[in-house]
Amino acid sequence: MLAYDPGESAAHRLDARTKLLVQTAFAAAAFAHTTPSGLAALTALAVVLLAGSATPVRTALAEFRVVLPLLAAGPIVEALRLGAPWVEPTAAVAPALASYRSLLLLGLAAAYVRTTPVRESEAAVSWLVPGRPGRLLGVGVGLVFRLLPVLQADLARTREAMRARLGDERPLRDRVRIVTTAGLNRVLGRTDRLAVALRARCLSWNPTPPPSSLDRGDAVAAALAAGLLAWAVWPAGAV
């Protein structure tokens, strides 16, 4: 499962905001230059970035093995025709490039997740969205990270219990309803306790932010992001 992996790589030392900026700039450049040469250049950059974040390419790909068949489906369906000649390979070129672009973006996202602790992501969200909505969003994001394993265990127990009672043989609609009811009851049961716990810890609008750690590495990464953004707005034919 995709999760934070402590380490000492260059990307681990970067600020979460810088990494989000680089990802956004990379995405902008990839969308602006979805050509074989553009994507080749970006692939080289992505390999360098993955190497700098202690994420082997194989690991990044493995994280998204579920998505890979879906990425392949687009070009295949687009190339098929309902009459002769049945298959038109040229129609699949643009979708194939687009699918490959998605793969690059997902790889970078994997690198971000593996190198960024939850607390920093939370602070980055609060910083990116100003004011009280940002504060609520930041707290909410932190809570999702903490509650996910808890609710996952709840639902896993429910499904196990259902299987033990031959629930697998019930109609699909019943199975979905049972899992939903169990999940919902756990959620509603936890709400009051969570609210009390938040108040007991004096949840405030103006918490002390974690120490900012912008250093030289962040400046380099920001320069890279600026370069990518400039390349993205540059007319594609001019390069």
Binding site: Q23, A27, V67, L105, V113, V141
Partner: peptide, 20 residues
Amino acid sequence: VGAPVFAGGGAGLGSLFGPW
């Protein structure tokens, strides 16, 4: 920002710009 909450345990900005 990295909670594995998207389909199949996916996460990250890439998913938001991805096909789904």
